[in-house]
């Protein structure tokens, strides 16, 4: 399996708003902490190391 770069979320605008709204009222430190937790939760859900590695690369990571 490879990283899915096609649109995969129904109603993209609503998702995006939900993501942004979820950090409403947070300061930078709180938002950064939440982002880290989110990455860990989603990475574990994906599970496939190849897919995760490709995402790390696509995100500009030094992989």
């Amino acid at each position: 399996m490879s990283l899915n770069l096609n649109s995969n979320i129904a109603d993209p605008d609503a998702f995006y708003k939900e993501l942004i709204d979820s950090q409403r009222g947070m300061d930078d430190a709180q938002a950064a902490m939440m982002n880290c937790k989110l990455v860990l939760l989603l990475a574990n859900h994906i599970g496939d190391r190849e897919v995760i590695r490709e995402a790390l690369k696509r995100a500009g990571g030094a992989v």
């Binding site: 902490m33 937790k37 860990l40 939760l41």
Partner: peptide
């Protein structure tokens, strides 16, 4: 450090077995 602390916070959740493994 942020990732480390995030892992430790998640690990407290009884459902988050994956985080305890990290």
């Amino acid at each position: 450090r942020l990732y480390r602390d995030a892992t430790l916070q998640l690990a407290e959740d009884p459902d988050a077995e994956f985080a305890r493994k990290l």
